[in-house]
């Protein structure tokens, strides 16, 4: 790689600096001050907006909060107990798991399909590659509005199609099961651009010699896919799975715009529940307990999945 900038300042200037500053090993003595200056800003920001709030959330989760949000009565783990005993919260947890699982599986499956389709060497394939990555430029509220229209009753595309084909009209967003399907489909669609870009990149890196060798041995395309492609892209698949998984756990915008957690709390996922309890009903103690559970689940899953898959993926 060429550099357009001159990498070093002029020698004279460098020398004058050198006189003032001890070199080499001695220089490391000052490293901690430099490190403090370089890392300081980041540490302050992370401290104020990530570490402190985590501790504060834990603290708040042990209290009842009054009508202006101040913690007043210490209740220990009672907020957690209330949650675990609440069928509504368990349902929210379960709905989140169903949603996350479906989103991860579908995103990866369709993502691999798109990537496989896009590595073909065909005329005009570049156009398809561009199209397949398009949803990466779609933000959450745009995706929600596009799909809201598709799923909306009577005027929406799906209901019109169903009506013209004399199929039963489904009330997508007002029937619990279908509403979940609707937000899963929308989420997967929104995820596809990103997933495609990564998986496509990984597929391109698989050396063609491996396929040639397999082809010589007469391996079927299915065998090639399972025994050459998949092992080769498994580190990338693992990365994508983790990113999608964590993203799905944090889903909020689509839910807020499309279903607001309904119908019958069917799409009331964990983050939405936190929002509801904290910012609609001012129940900060309980919402903090929900936040802690969410944080533990995400942190734990990230860690477990990382450790577990680390052993199984093939690193070249």
């Amino acid at each position: 790689m060429e550099m357009t900038h001159k990498p070093f300042p002029s020698p004279t200037k460098a020398k004058s600096v050198a006189k003032e500053r001890p070199r080499g090993f001695n220089g490391h003595r000052h490293d901690k001050y430099v490190a403090a200056a370089f890392l300081g800003p980041s540490l302050v920001v992370l401290g104020i907006f990530v570490f402190y709030p985590m501790l504060k959330t834990l603290y708040l989760s042990l209290f009842l909060t009054n009508n202006v949000g101040r913690p007043t009565v210490f209740v220990g783990l009672k907020n957690y107990g209330t949650l675990l005993a609440s069928s509504a919260y368990r349902a929210s947890f379960q709905a989140t798991l169903i949603y996350v699982f479906s989103v991860v599986v579908l995103t990866l499956t369709v993502g691999v399909l798109l990537a496989q389709a896009a590595v073909q060497k065909l005329a005009g394939i570049r156009w398809f590659r561009t199209i397949f990555s398009a949803t990466m430029g779609v933000s959450v509220s745009v995706a929600a509005i596009f799909w809201l229209f598709i799923f909306s009753p009577s005027v929406g595309l799906l209901d019109q199609l169903a009506a013209s084909l004399h199929l039963p009209v489904i009330n997508w967003l007002t029937t619990p099961g279908w509403a979940m399907v609707a937000i899963i489909v929308s989420t997967v669609w929104m995820n596809l651009g990103f997933t495609f870009l990564i998986l496509f990149g990984a597929l391109q890196m698989v050396p063609t010699t491996l396929y040639d060798a397999a082809a010589v041995e007469g391996a079927s395309p299915r065998y090639q896919f399972l025994h050459v492609t998949l092992p080769m892209i498994s580190p990338t698949l693992f990365f994508t799975a983790t990113v999608t998984l964590i993203g799905a756990f944090k889903s909020f915008g689509l839910i807020d715009l499309m279903t607001a957690g309904g119908p019958n709390n069917a799409t009331n996922l964990m983050v939405y529940q936190v929002y509801r309890d904290a910012f609609l009903t001012g129940n900060y103690g309980q919402a903090s307990a929900e936040s802690m559970i969410l944080a533990v689940v995400i942190a734990g899953l990230t860690w477990v999945q990382f450790k577990f898959l680390e052993k199984r993926v093939t690193y070249e």
Partner: peptide, 24 residues
Amino acid sequence: ALFYVILATMMLPFEAEVIPNFAT
């Protein structure tokens, strides 16, 4: 150690911290 501390923040979801952050 510090690097791992920073890495650990990747595991803490901002969504779970909005209550104290709002207070801040």
